[in-house]
Design a protein around this nucleic acid. Structure first.
Lengths: 288, 288
DNA sequence: TAGATTGTTAATCGATTAACAATC
DNA sequence: TAGATTGTTAATCGATTAACAATC
């Protein structure tokens, strides 16, 4: 095993860096791990509707994946299905939850309480899966003392004490990019070993610390890439879709789409280099 | 080409579904496309520091990837480097921007102006890359008329008119999960062909429409999976890391980490099934 | 020319998928 | 038994990476 400092990979890629190594410890591929939460969400919805069993075909459709892939994924967890019948919903919810570690309580700290920090503090999807917000932290005295999601915002100075006393092992960084590495270092030093980074910065962490990155602008850029391609291909793709469209509604929509966002996009609106300067700036998300 | 409705894949997986098909149109792999924004960010930082050229090794380190991968990625764009010298920063910034479609203006609408919608409206990383917020939309009369990021929040009723008049092809969904599919349908019907979905719902869209998904809770669940593994492996991994740790600070931190978040986690705090009920609820992020 | 670094090759690895035997 | 559906195999595909010839 390599010792030293490693950098995280983007969450968008299944790039299994050193920090992601443990995933294959019991033989579960990283790609499968990334899909388990999707299955869990679909299963939880079925559970709430009191559906007792589900086939791989049905569940795959609900989760938006191929059924062969789903069965292959589940085979890494064990044989939890019944041939000719399907999977027991409740049992599978439990097994996947256990596999993901969601049957235990995970205290997390959120550092940087701007709009995004607020949004995350309020996010219902956390609490329902065993993630408990142990503390909200901010460096700005104007924000410290206010409250979000019913919790007081505390000062960064308290970070170490909170992490230690509440045994926090997961930290969420929603600071401006300039502060992210420094915050990350303090979190790691205090004992945090998993970091979810929303700041558009590559974080450097020691071996044994996991970093996952959520980058809002990268997702839009990837969409723009494909959108650009669509505009270029429009004469072909648009027409073929239109010709075989299943109904008048679809046809009208496609026509409208072409008119509104189609070939006009093929000509760049700006000729030269793109604007620079506010590179990856999250500070607007933060309080002044 | 298959005609019909398809579901998107999660942004975490490079699962090239039907909706992602155009990516290989000019032969650029999806994994490469997903990394171009990372390179662009690193290059923009260099450009701001007036660095004229950069080697694949340096740039790869800044972007957090392997240099061979970076060179391979760039080879899909063309031969933009100079052997023995490296890459011209400005030129590469332009070429990648162009490839991603960022040299043109992309009007986007954001639907659902809760905390997350606010955060996105304020996000500086959008405007700097040619993404222009054409409108903020919400269904709640209490929110409509307020302003965010200097823009008025407008009512959903105006969606179609705005998409058409401003030629919006990209929509961002930050609504509660229950409203997401309905909003998606309206966006697509109005002419939007790319959707960035923050609601924890699998969206169904017609062929030709791209959906990318950002799921805040999935990222945490993946971290929890690895964190759980760490706790289990701690006796092995913790010690080996400690033994060869480069300095007293690292050793102390590692020891602290073990004490605070280590083997204690190996025992589930809760024995049975995880709490259910607030499955993927984004409504707390939304205004009441 | 000597040193540096790209662009490409080829080996390897991991993920996806169709197909089907096993079995409920 | 007949029908349904899982779990697994094996083929295929795409992504990663080290190595190095090309060349500045």
């Amino acid at each position: 095993m390599a010792i030293g400092r490693s950098t995280q990979s983007t969450s968008q890629t299944p790039d299994a860096g050193a920090a992601r190594r443990p995933s294959r410890a019991r033989g579960i591929p990283e790609a499968t791990v990334a899909r388990l939460p999707l299955y869990l969400r679909a299963l939880t919805a079925l559970s709430e509707r009191s559906v007792p069993t589900v086939s791989s075909e049905e569940l795959a459709a609900a989760a938006g994946v191929n059924s062969a892939k789903l069965r292959k994924d589940f085979s890494y967890l064990g044989s939890y299905g019944t041939r000719g019948v399907g999977y027991d919903v409740e049992y599978l919810v439990y097994q996947i939850s256990r596999e993901l570690g969601l049957t235990q309580d995970w205290p997390v700290v959120i550092v940087g309480i701007g709009n995004l920090g607020h949004a995350l503090a309020n996010y219902g999807g956390f609490a329902s899966r065993g993630f408990r917000v142990a503390a909200l932290l901010d460096a700005d005295p104007a924000v410290v003392g206010s409250s979000a999601a019913g919790l007081p915002v505390r000062h960064m100075d308290e970070l170490e004490a909170i992490v230690e006393s509440q045994q926090v092992s997961i930290g969420v960084i929603t600071t401006p990019p300039g502060a992210a590495q420094q915050v990350c270092d303090r979190l790691v030093e205090a004992g945090v070993t998993s970091i979810l980074n929303f700041a558009p910065t590559v974080l450097t962490v020691p071996d044994g610390v996991d970093v996952r990155k959520v980058d809002l602008s990268i997702e839009l850029q990837i969409l723009a890439f494909h959108e650009q391609r669509k505009a270029g291909e429009e004469p072909d793709r648009g027409d073929s879709v239109l010709d075989r469209a299943p109904g008048p509604v679809r046809a009208a929509a496609a026509k409208l789409r072409r008119a509104a966002g189609g070939t006009a996009k093929a000509e760049p609106a700006k000729g030269g280099k793109p604007a620079k300067g506010t590179e990856g700036d999250l500070s607007a998300v933060m309080p002044a």
